[in-house]
């Protein structure tokens, strides 16, 4: 796959590219020539733009309107979760709450019912954490070692396995779901958190391996050779040279996996039991349960709670997130 390095590069130019140097830098002629030009042509550089030109109004206007549309669902969720049910029944979903109440949040976290359990979303939250932490660690360890072996220690057939792995990323999960159920059942892990961790590790492998392979391949080859000459072996080079040099890519991989696994629904619902359902599955069960009176404010509080983890990661990680998804573009 030659796709990803190209993508990564593209996103890197994007990170530190023209946006940071500002609009004038790229248009400024070389300093020697500019002195001469200035005399010949008069003032150099672009004609200053008016702040309120028609073009600017059009661009900023469109972007602001689109951004408002994108923010609307988040806004509606937040205001709904802060209202009491009577206010929701009477009022307008876009109106800010007249009387702010945090009761729906408390209820969503600690009292909302799914089936017989009435201990709220907190159960799903902790299940998700128990799934997330080992899955992220395990998948990153395995994929980074794979990537390292593929980049620096190629053996006969390694590229073939890698190609299969990448092609496998395009196979719909539905095709592989049931064989995995059988395999997990055979080893007694079907319905357990361990089983789900293995599934996440398997399906995270193609994209992460690709990510690490490309990164390790860009580490200067001389470094690797020098370490070999000094007698360092496979593991010594991995732990003492590759890992310390590649921390940014580990962070990218972590962002990718944390958001991906937290947001998973399909694997959670198939490979775990109701007691161990991750947060997304439990959220869906709470909101879409057919019994009882619908409490929209509680539902929205629960929805925001579930989205909070990936959103926090997104807003903290900023450009690294963009890099991660650009690299993950091949995953689909």
């Amino acid at each position: 796959m030659t796709k990803a390095p190209h993508l990564l590069k593209a996103s890197m130019t994007y990170d530190g590219g023209p946006a940071d140097t500002g609009p004038d830098m790229s248009l400024r002629p070389g300093s020697g020539a500019s002195a001469a030009n200035r005399i010949v042509d008069g003032p150099a550089g672009r004609k200053p733009r008016k702040a309120l030109s028609r073009r600017n109004i059009l661009i900023y206007g469109t972007l602001i309107v689109v951004c408002l549309y994108y923010l609307l669902p988040l806004y509606v969720m937040i205001v709904t979760s802060l209202k009491g049910m009577p206010e929701i029944r009477l009022g307008n979903i876009f109106a800010p709450p007249v009387e702010v109440t945090f009761q729906p949040w408390v209820k969503a976290w600690a009292e909302a019912c799914t089936g017989l359990n009435c201990d709220g979303l907190s159960r799903g939250f902790f299940n998700s954490v128990k799934i997330l932490v080992p899955s992220v660690i395990l998948s990153i360890i395995i994929a980074s070692i794979n990537g390292y072996a593929l980049a620096n220690w190629r053996f006969k057939g390694s590229e073939t396995f890698f190609t299969i792995l990448i092609v496998g990323a395009f196979i719909p999960y539905q095709v592989m779901i049931y064989p995995i159920v059988i395999m997990l059942r055979e080893v007694g892990l079907y319905g357990s958190l361990t089983g789900l961790v293995i599934v996440h590790t398997i399906f995270g492998m193609p994209i992460l391996t690709l990510l690490f392979r490309n990164y390790f391949a860009s580490v200067p080859q001389e470094l690797f050779k020098a370490a070999r000459v000094d007698g360092a072996g496979f593991w010594a080079i991995y732990f003492q040279i590759m890992v310390p040099m590649s921390l940014p890519i580990f962070v990218v991989a972590m962002i990718l996996q944390v958001t991906g696994i937290w947001n998973d629904f399909l694997f959670g619902v198939i490979y775990t039991k109701p007691d161990l359902y991750p947060m997304t599955v439990q959220l869906n069960n709470i909101v879409n349960s057919t019994q009882g009176v619908k409490e929209y404010n509680v539902n929205m509080a629960a929805t925001i709670l579930t989205g909070l983890v990936p959103l926090t990661i997104y807003f903290i990680s900023g450009k690294l997130f963009v890099r991660g998804i650009a690299a993950g573009a091949v995953k689909g």
Binding site: L63, Y70, T280, V287, I313, Y314
Partner: peptide, 25 residues
Amino acid sequence: DTFRTILLYPFALSFIVTGLAWQWI
């Protein structure tokens, strides 16, 4: 950066959260 952050944030949310938010709207 601000515009981009706003336009991309839904992508961080799961389809379940997305679906439930729009179900409500």
